[in-house]
Simulated scan of single mutants.
Amino acid sequence: MTFLPIALGGTELLAWRLDQAVHAPTWDSGEGSYRVGGRWNSKGVRTVYCSLDPATAILEVAVHKGFRALDTVAHIMTAVVIADVGDVHVVDPETVPNPNWLRPGIPGAGQQAFGDDLLQRHRFVAIPSAVSRHSWNLIFLASRATGAYALKFQENFALDTRLHPPTA
């Protein structure tokens, strides 16, 4: 079944995440961002990164790992229901202090501090994706959002093999 986004008449706000199968049981731990930091969090902050559509979740992983890894290593797609849309703070791109933070590149300390502050003030933060300019990510602190979302499903991910064609 394909779930309609709220904007198209769906009844739930879904967030999507793609993980290696071995990490899928702990998808909402924020362990990876805790260990190394992320675009919107400093090292030591357990931030969970999701997307507001499954295609962006795939691109967010592919930009780091490549389509080969998505084709050859088992991954799980997770869909999560956000209980109250009012808990989501939407970042207006015009309010981001440095517009380069919304473009591909290595995040700096200022960007991570900006994200850390947002995450302390809001249960969920919707912020534009750097990978796909008109797409959105949803981030949250693992501890701050407890009970404010529910797992809808997890399923095996299958990459369209045209994205990793044979070499000539």
Rank of each mutant, 00 (worst) to 15 (best):
Q120E: 14
G105Q: 05
R46K: 15
R103A: 12
L102Q: 02
P93L: 04
V125K: 13
D84R: 14
H89R: 09
G110T: 02
G44S: 11
L102I: 02
D87Y: 01
V73A: 00
E60V: 11
L52T: 14
A74C: 00
T95R: 08
A55M: 13
K65I: 03
G108L: 05
I127Q: 13
A83Y: 01
G110N: 12
V81T: 13
G110S: 12
G86K: 07
G108D: 15
F124M: 08
C50W: 06
N98K: 05
L52D: 09
V91H: 09
V96P: 01
N41C: 15
H89Q: 05
A69M: 04
V88P: 05
V125N: 13
V125W: 14
T72D: 00
A55H: 11
P104F: 04
A109I: 10
H122E: 05
A130C: 14
L119N: 09
A55P: 01
E60M: 12
D84Y: 07
S51I: 11
A79I: 05
I106A: 10
F124W: 09
R68E: 13
F124E: 06
V125S: 13
V85W: 03
G66I: 05
A83Q: 06
H89V: 01
M77C: 02
Y49V: 08
D117Q: 14
W101Y: 04
V61K: 14
A83P: 00
Q111L: 08
A109G: 02
L70C: 01
D117G: 05
V90C: 08
S51T: 12
P128H: 07
W101C: 02
T47P: 03
A62V: 11
P104A: 04
E60G: 11
N98E: 12
H75D: 01
C50D: 04
L102E: 02
E60H: 12
I127E: 13
V125P: 12
D117P: 01
A55S: 14
D53H: 13
A113G: 01
R68Y: 02
E94I: 01
H122K: 06
P93D: 03
I58Q: 15
H75L: 00
D117T: 14
Q112I: 03
A69C: 01
T95V: 09
A55T: 12
I76R: 01
F124Y: 15
N98A: 03
A69E: 10
H89K: 08
W101H: 02
L59F: 15
G105Y: 06
V88F: 08
R123V: 15
T56R: 08
N41W: 12
D53Y: 10
V80L: 12
W40C: 09
A57Y: 08
P97R: 04
D84K: 11
I82D: 03
V81S: 14
N100Y: 05
